[in-house]
Design a protein around this nucleic acid. Structure first.
Lengths: 145, 145
DNA sequence: ACTAAATAGGATTAAATTATCCGAAATGAA
DNA sequence: TTCATTTCGGATAATTTAATCCTATTTAGT
């Protein structure tokens, strides 16, 4: 409804990597796609995007894998992950697809939707990778099934 | 972000038909797709779905077109239009794509997203075709550009 | 040096969504 | 009756998104 499939996988993958990093463990692509229940090859592509966007770090070679620093994960927000995977977010986009939709020239749903849009943008802008991975680590939330 | 392209067109089309009906005018598919700025053939398909779902009424033949009763448009909600076009709405769907995500077993975003989801569902469930078309008719909102 | 295991990246395929085309059927008007 | 205009419905095409395949490169361990 709000995220693309690639984003859903990407967010879950980032959280899993972060949670492992909290426990000083590095994880492989196969491990990740198994633990978040996502297609391997597709997940690999998404992980590459996260690496290029400096959201997670990759280590090549036999004992390689993915990880993310504890300091870094505090700064990384949901927004950053979404942008890394789907590209820039158009915050002006009209819910009914009008090219111009604003307070001055609103679509018929604008005045109801604007609060929802504000809440969504605020949520993805304020939710950090750190708090999500800590929530999983504490057993308060999960990433699979 | 929330509606498919087909839904965007469909909602705009329904509002346009309703607004014309408020003024006792029937409108053709070409008229509709011109006035809401949408592709003709694709819009025609969507209009057929709205007709089959009894959201708008069609009249065949030379002076035919689409219309909707004033009493009917009060009962029709955004939800009905979305279901007619995209099929049933899965209100349980997890924002991160988990198969099972609930209060008992939440994903890491569940507790923040649940309020947004509630607001979205409440909006589409409560917003009527009547109020949207009246808003356009009163010049308070628009459907084009 | 060799091997196994890992990431990186290009090419390709599959599926879903968006969009078009065309002919049939209906119908009001000349 | 004939014609122009309209909705209806099936088939098809184009685009975007999702997913896979295969090979190259890196690197720790033996």
């Amino acid at each position: 409804m709000i995220f693309s499939k690639a984003c859903e996988y990407g967010i879950r993958a980032a959280i899993y990597v972060a949670q492992k990093s909290l426990n000083h463990e590095r994880c492989s692509m196969k491990d990740i796609s198994k633990e978040i229940d996502s297609p391997e090859a597709f997940t690999a592509k998404i992980l590459q995007k996260l690496v290029k966007a400096d959201i997670i770090k990759s280590v090549k070679g036999a004992t390689g894998g993915f990880e993310v620093g504890i300091k870094e994960m505090k700064k990384i927000k949901l927004t950053d992950i979404v942008i890394a995977i789907d590209g820039e977010i158009n915050e002006k986009k009209c819910v009914l697809g009008l090219k111009k939709c604003s307070e001055d020239q609103p679509c018929p749903v604008h005045n109801k939707y604007k609060f929802i849009k504000k809440d969504v943008l605020s949520m993805i802008h304020n939710t950090s990778l750190s708090e999500m991975s800590n929530s999983v680590d504490a057993g308060l939330s999960c990433l699979k099934i």
